[in-house]
Every structure is written in C-alpha cells, then in structure tokens.
C-alpha cells in the first residue's frame, strides 16, 4: 500500500541518524572496552574489565552506589511529605506551589551547585549564621555529606513531581470511603494512600537514583579527594589520562547497571502509572 509506505518512509532519516549517533557510538564504546593498545594497535583483551574489579575501583563503584542510595532515600523522606502536603486539599493554589518547586530547575545546574560553595564554606553563609546563633560550625564542604546534599538539592524535584502527580490523581472518594469505614488519618495513610502512591514513589526513585549514580559534577564541585564517583573516574580516563579503553569499560559497567535498574523499575511499575517526567 502506497499510503503506509509513504508514512513509513518518513522514519528513514531517523533510522540512519540513530544508527550513526546512538548505535555505532555504543558499539565503539564496547569495542574500546574490549581492547588494549599494544604497539599502536588495538588488540582484544579482557584486561579493562579485570582492572575495573580491582579494590580501588570497587571502592569507587560502591561509593557511587552508596551516595546515590542515601540521596535517593533522603529525597524520598523529604520529598514525599512535600508532595503529600501539596496534593492535600488544604491549599488553594496547589499548581503555584508545585511551580515553586520546579522553577529552580530553570537556573543553570552547575551554577546552582556552585552556589552551595558560598553557603557551605568554612566562613560561608551557613557557618556565619550558625556561629551567629551560637552553634558550632559545620565542616561540610569537600566531604561526602556535601555531595549527598548537592544530589538531594538537585534531584529533589524529580522525587516530588511524580509522587505529587499520583497523589493528586487519587480519587478523593477513596479516602472518604476509608474514613467512612472507620479509618483514622493514620490508617488512611498507611493502608490506602501510601500503597496507592507506590507507582509515583518508584518513578521518583528511578528519576533520582539514575542521575545521582552517574553524576560527576556534584562530586567534582562539592566533594573532596575521597568523593570520587564512577562519573569522575570515567571523566578522568577520557579527559585527563586518556585511557579510553579503561574509560569505556567503566562506561559499559555504568550503563549496564543503569539499564538493569531501569528495567527492574519499569517492571515493578508495569502499568506505567508513575507519572514520570518522560
């Protein structure tokens, strides 16, 4: 049929584009990760992957996972109440409140993170404030705590938004039905609202954990010498020490972890009710 083929022909440029700019680049990463440069030639080798499992690098990966996990948990604990309060019917201008939480994302990500330097520094704003009210200073900057803070700060809206979307969509008569059947507010929350909001929670977790585990800027700007994450390691291999083979192997590992997690999360939220950003 002509009409079908006319439509299908429209996809051709995109097929070529994604082959060139999506598929081939990934194949190149795989190729580099499985080779070593010997006498100016690339020779097949597992060595890059073997090296990735040396204790130093295992440490980096574990740290990445740990910090991302802590940040995700913190975002959930901080963000769920925000979403819950905003979605409750108590406030008039709910969309404006949500808007307030999304607006900061329109400021350059690097600058926002960099701003935390001024806040966290030894003689920075936070410490001036703390000593002003007679509290001890906090030496947060250039520690893993600062990295977690930066992650929470940057990714919190990704947690709030999907949870808010699910909670707002929730049929209010369900809550009334639960109250009608004798549930007090605690029971309503734990037996009904929380279970019904799991799709939003799962999307939130996905959308926070993924960028947190792959970031290198936050750790670069706010972290110290002991805050190296997988992202920093990859960046170094490509931009500083020019070991593209090892960098590629680390990239493959990171990509594998992210894809596996993403698949697991999408399977858990199989109805796609999560209201994710994309």
């Amino acid at each position: 049929m002509l009409k079908g083929s006319a439509k299908r022909a429209a996809v051709a440029p995109y097929v070529i584009w994604s082959a060139l700019f999506v598929i081939i680049p990934i194949l190149l990463v795989i190729y580099y990760s499985l080779t070593m440069e010997t006498d100016g030639k690339l020779v097949f080798s597992w060595a890059n992957y073997a090296r990735a499992f040396q204790p130093t690098y295992i440490d980096v990966m574990l740290r990445s996972g740990r910090l991302a996990l802590i940040s995700t948990a913190a975002c959930l604990l901080i963000g769920y109440p925000v979403a819950y309060i905003m979605a409750s019917r108590e406030f008039e201008n709910r969309s404006f409140l949500l808007f307030l939480f999304l607006v900061p994302m329109w400021m350059n990500f690097l600058l926002r993170t960099y701003s935390w330097l001024a806040l966290l520094e030894n003689n920075g704003i936070l410490n001036t404030f703390l000593s002003g009210i007679g509290l001890p200073k906090l030496a947060l900057l250039y520690t893993n705590k600062a990295v977690v803070l930066g992650m929470v700060y940057n990714f919190l809206p990704f947690m709030i938004l999907p949870i808010y979307t699910v909670l707002k969509k929730m049929d209010h008569s369900l809550i009334e039905a639960a109250q009608d059947l004798g549930a007090d507010s605690r029971n309503v929350f734990f037996r009904l609202v929380l279970p019904l909001s799991t799709p939003g929670v799962i999307s939130g977790i996905t959308m926070v954990f993924m960028p947190a585990v792959t970031t290198f800027i936050i750790s670069d700007l706010l972290g110290g010498s002991k805050s190296m994450l997988i992202g920093n390691l990859i960046e170094q291999q490509f931009m500083k020490v020019s070991d593209w083979n090892f960098g590629s192997a680390m990239s493959m590992i990171l990509m594998g972890v992210v894809l596996v997690l993403f698949t697991v999360f999408t399977m858990v939220d199989k109805d796609g009710e999560g209201g994710a950003l994309y």
Partner: peptide, 13 residues
C-alpha cells in the same frame, strides 16, 4: 453510619 459511594470507591490496591 456507612456509605455506598456513587462510583463505589472500591480500593484498587
């Protein structure tokens, strides 16, 4: 008192 809601409001979970 207990209520039977207009669109039932059964708990989907």
């Amino acid at each position: 008192v207990n209520t039977v809601f207009q669109r039932y409001a059964l708990f989907p979970n």
